[in-house]
Design a binder for these strands. Structure first.
Lengths: 156, 156
DNA sequence: GCCTTTAGGTTGTATATACAACCACATGGG
DNA sequence: CCCATGTGGTTGTATATACAACCTAAAGGC
């Protein structure tokens, strides 16, 4: 057994290949890193960047259903359901049964709008930090890429 | 200067600005989307892409401590601790007290190497799908950006 | 008008993640 | 030697996420 057995000739080890190329490990790293930047900035307001993003959708798209939020953000309906549960607890949004047909409607509340206003400067700071971290090009490309995935999946 | 009406009022709503520019909502979207692609592909093996990524680090970097894994992947030590707990349960790695000094050492097991081998083709399929989703340029830029963040943070 | 189908939401379970508090022990000072 | 300190890991708690199972009520078929 002095020498490397024939099997030894993997052009590259599975581990090497995944480490060098895997897109998942990279997007997950960026997710952790950037989410931490925003969450830290927003902490004084007691809101997370994920919740803020949902709030933005509700604010912009007027009365809409939880299912619509899920579609727009490509999230599981159960995830949205539980996020909204917390947000309703804070009084940022209300959920009421739809008058017309089935389903329910979300509406942003005064408290929610207030939060958006107060969050803006903190968000801007985080956004700057994030941009510095990614670099102009990285940031721009991230936006372009995400927006393309978005429209394919039907951001509408 | 020309004319665009004096935007005396909110130049743009807070919600509009965040929706149009926020990097966090975008990286989070990509994370959900890509992780789903890989997790679905890997499901037959009962491993998640996050676990696979940790396993790759252990495989490549030989015996190393949980803390080293955390540093390398920019994860919380507690997160790593619990991920490893599950992976140890599957027998993919072992954790033993370090002979020299303090701390512990992780080693990949035969089962773990086997898993890497079996995962490779499934991972390749997922990687192709992911690349198709992002586009060549998006994928390349994601790799470049993540790798730069990585080295700054000290991937070494 | 009933009954079946199905869409929209919630609940159960599990992983991933992070912050804070804690614990255990190796190390270093005296 | 023994104690003080600091590092590495685990545990407690909370959010984010997803899949599967379930529930309820609207829609449709007949």
């Amino acid at each position: 057994m002095g020498r490397a057995p024939t099997k030894k000739r993997h052009p590259r080890d599975a581990a090497d290949q995944m480490a060098d190329e895997c897109l998942a490990v990279r997007v997950r790293l960026l997710n952790r890193t950037l989410s931490a930047v925003y969450d830290e900035a927003l902490r004084p307001l007691g809101v997370t960047v994920g919740q803020l993003n949902v709030l933005v959708v509700v604010a912009k798209r007027g009365p809409l259903s939880p299912g619509d939020v899920a579609k727009r953000l490509h999230m599981e309906k159960s995830t949205v359901s539980r996020n909204l549960e917390r947000m309703r607890g804070h009084g940022w949004v209300t959920l009421s049964p739809s008058r017309s047909g089935r389903g329910q409607v979300l509406v942003i509340h005064a408290k929610g709008r207030k939060l958006l206003e107060r969050a803006l400067p903190l968000w801007e700071k985080a956004q700057e930090d994030a941009e510095a971290l990614l670099g102009q090009r990285g940031a721009q490309s991230l936006r372009r890429t995400a927006d393309s995935v978005w429209s394919r999946g039907g951001r509408g």
